[in-house]
Design a protein around this nucleic acid. Structure first.
Lengths: 249, 249
DNA sequence: ACCATTAATTACTCAGACAATTAGGTTAAG
DNA sequence: CTTAACCTAATTGTCTGAGTAATTAATGGT
């Protein structure tokens, strides 16, 4: 076994002003990361040696190595002398890393994985809403209100609207005062953002999401943890249902 | 402002056979990462230029740069031409990355952060236990039983016992069939392992944890989600209490 | 069958040069 | 006085080529 893998074609640095590949090594990491997440390079298989791979990618070994360090830092690959750099088993991947999530959604996202993300969201966000209801202060409430206003002004079809949606959920997470939850939010919110974008790529928003969000906000403002948790549970469940529809289509 | 930072002293590659710093760049990343997590380098401050820093560390620029790529991949720093590499604000850090968690616990871990981790655990693990109760199969049950047997044989005071504890919780997470949860478990379990080690550094285990785990296992085996969730809630709460005691002391 | 030794492969580290990018100051226009 | 465009210098980014160190696998001895 252990057939070595070689890249398909040379790399071109992306020209996006704010993309993940502003630098050459970033572009390589993006290309390889997306390829690994897409299943083109299977776990256990080994990438052909530095010199060969870098040459085929038409980049220097420095750039290639720095890209590999990035992938290794995210648990996608591991390099050892004499053994080469091989793709690690899936359970070693840092799937909650925002950049890795981006790579996962760069291609056709795995349906089972999207479902598991929503399940995680359905676990974390209601609990977070409950905590927020207990600990929210005036500033946090203002952030939520502002975000909800932004969602109302622009719709979820626009980028500004989606950003307001992220702001709303982020405000709740921040109100919990829990660093671990906040970090997790950065991941989950990013994923949700990808999926909503994915959703609206196919059909327009079938339902007005504002009332659901409003109920959550009201419960938090009223310092009612149980109601906040329940309202958020409903919100996530409806969002899941919308996504499910558009993914079957 | 923007006072530039310089390292205290040169680097020595760690000799640990399975540590994070088997290679030179890994040792640098470990040193700098731990220093950042410890608050020695504050967000916004800028590390003195590559050439200067690498020279003071007595390593080549290549090794230093590869270490920086690792830190950048974990959201700790960001490098731009002319601006240098600066420490990012705390909310950009991937605190759930296992390696970052290791760095956080390499020094005196922040009490608030440890509390937030336990809070996250108290949210995720009961929900995971409930899911496991719904979806568990024979193989998963066997894994849990084996792990519990291991915990009984060795105690939590030994490394083998702690590993069995991790296996038990991992088995539950795997039984959910939820990839996102499994990845999150890799982080949280690692953190819990750090804290339990931290805990036993000061006093011996004050309570027998086996019955608590047994209750969880029984509920999952009985396919009773509510009971599993409740049993796990109790387990985590007791663990939190133990840790709280030893951290105040 | 097992363990020490050796050899070959591969990643790792180093050094120095050049290119690309951009922060920050400077100048010009409104 | 404010704002925008421009320039410059400082810094990271990229490349090349050489040599070192670590690890696996084969080899030979016990």
């Amino acid at each position: 076994m252990s057939k070595t893998i070689t890249p398909a074609e040379p790399i071109k640095r992306a020209r996006e002003p704010r993309g993940t590949g502003r630098r050459l090594y970033g572009a390589i990491a993006h290309k390889l990361g997306a390829a690994i997440l897409a299943g083109e390079y299977l776990p256990g298989e080994v990438l052909s040696g530095e010199i060969v791979f870098a040459e085929l990618l038409d980049v220097s070994r420095s750039a290639y190595r720095e890209a590999i360090q990035v992938l290794a830092a995210k648990g996608l690959v591991e390099s050892r002398p004499k053994a080469g750099t091989r793709v690690l088993p899936r359970n070693r991947w840092n799937l909650l890393d925002p950049e890795v999530l981006g790579w996962a959604f760069a291609g056709q996202p795995d349906v089972a994985f999207v479902r598991s993300l929503f399940e995680l969201r359905a676990i974390v966000e209601p609990a977070a809403a409950a905590l927020a209801a207990e600990r929210r202060d005036k500033a946090a409430l203002k952030s939520m209100r502002d975000a909800l206003a932004g969602m109302t002004r622009h719709t979820l079809a626009s980028e500004a609207g989606r950003m307001a949606d992220r702001d709303f959920h982020n405000a709740i997470l921040h109100a919990t005062g829990n660093d671990a939850l906040i970090v997790l939010s950065a991941s989950v919110c990013a994923a949700v953002s990808w999926t909503t974008q994915f959703k609206h790529r196919q059909r327009d928003l079938p339902r007005n999401p504002i009332p659901d969000h409003r109920r959550v906000l009201d419960a938090i403002a009223a310092s009612d943890p149980a109601a906040a948790s329940e309202a958020m549970r409903v919100l996530v469940e409806l969002a899941l249902e919308d996504t499910r529809q558009s993914m079957q289509a």
